[in-house]
Each structure stands twice: as structure tokens, then as C-alpha cells.
Nucleic acid binder design. Structure first.
Lengths: 90, 90
DNA sequence: AATCTAATTAGATTATAGTCTAAATAGGTG
DNA sequence: CACCTATTTAGACTATAATCTAATTAGATT
């Protein structure tokens, strides 16, 4: 859960998530939507992935990213719904 | 919205929010729940406040923090619900 | 196998965040 | 008004994050 909220803290990563809600996209397609270098975008992808917010599959030599909506929903639901003395760090 | 997600990125600040869901609390009460100094806690409060996630009122010489649940809900709802090409930075 | 394309990793730099101790502020209270 | 209590601000230090260029990997194609 910590990793999810850290991932969500950067505006570019939230925009990547918005894009992936419309459907899976390759690293290159996503990178082209932002004015950042591909290595920089790659580190953003890595953070989303390490929070399990996205999954990857390979198609020829492009990597396709897709959103794990359930992970996002679960993290936000815990923050909103769950009780006041629960351990937040799991 | 940026400020909200930055505020949510730190586990201590999420725990503060959990506490405030149970009701308003003074700066000192909150600070005593964590193994951090009061100045450090104060900077966490300041971030929550600058994201408008909490409000303050003074009672004698203690400052009472309370949660602005609607701000939290709105930010999370935007992330979950709103369309794939919306500007995320407003 | 040499080469091309897509993407990531390495390494360096700069910026931002988190933390502390010490000092300052702002209201109450004797 | 001098002091006490609660909290914040200042200033310094350390750690982490974001970004870039250059180099590397991994698979596909000729």
C-alpha cells in the first residue's frame, strides 16, 4: 500500500494511469505522450510496476503496459473505508 | 489534487488521517502517537493542511486538527472515475 | 551472425523531502 | 507583566527522487 501511494504521488505517473484506463499501451507510445526522455519514463513505469499498479507483456520487441485497476481500487478503498486504528503499512 | 496525493504519499500522514477519521485531535495528541519529534510532526500537519485535507481551530492554546473528508473523497474519486484524457494537475 | 529497434540499466547531477535540535511565537495563567 | 504550555519556524544535515546522457540488453530481421 505504501508503494501504491508513493507511485500515485507523481503527476506523470497519475497521467500514465489515466492513459492506461483507456487500454494497454506500449512503453514507447506512453513515452511519446510526455516531454520526458525514455529512460525517465522507464523509471516511472518501474515504480508503477513495483507497486503492482501495472503489468507487462512482451509483443515482439515492444513491451505492453496495462493497468491493474483492482490494486488501485483496493488501496483507495482502504484509505477511505477502513477503520481508524488499522495498520496502514501493510 | 497534486498536493493531496503528495500528502498521501507518506505513511505517517496517512496514519494521521486514519486517526482524524475517529474525530478531531490536537497537535500534541497526534504527535504523541508517533515516535517523531513535534517539529517533524508539525511539518506533516502543514502538508496535510496545505493540501486542504485538514482544518484547524484554536482552543485555548492547543490547536485542534480535523479531517476534511470531502477533499480526500474528491481526489480519490477523480483518480478512479474520471476520463482518460483529463488534465490531472488542476 | 550482424544489425536494427524498443526498452531498460548505469552513473552522475540537481532538487526535494524528512528529520533533528534550538529558537521563536502565541495565547493563557498566576 | 513575567512565566508557562503548546505549537510552529529556522537552520542544518541526510536521504531519496527525478532527470539526463551514455551504455547495455533482449529480441526480431535480414
Amino acid at each position: 500500500m505504501n508503494a501504491v501511494f508513493e507511485a500515485l504521488s507523481h503527476p506523470v505517473r497519475r497521467k500514465i494511469i489515466q492513459q492506461l484506463k483507456r487500454g494497454p499501451k506500449s512503453a514507447g507510445e506512453l513515452a511519446d505522450m510526455f516531454e520526458l526522455t525514455k529512460p525517465t519514463m522507464s523509471t516511472h513505469f518501474a515504480k508503477l510496476k513495483s507497486a503492482d499498479l501495472v503489468s507487462t507483456k512482451r509483443d515482439k520487441n515492444t513491451i505492453i503496459y496495462s493497468l491493474n485497476m483492482s490494486i488501485l481500487e483496493r488501496a483507495l478503498a482502504e484509505l477511505i473505508d477502513f477503520g481508524g486504528d488499522k495498520d496502514d503499512d501493510k
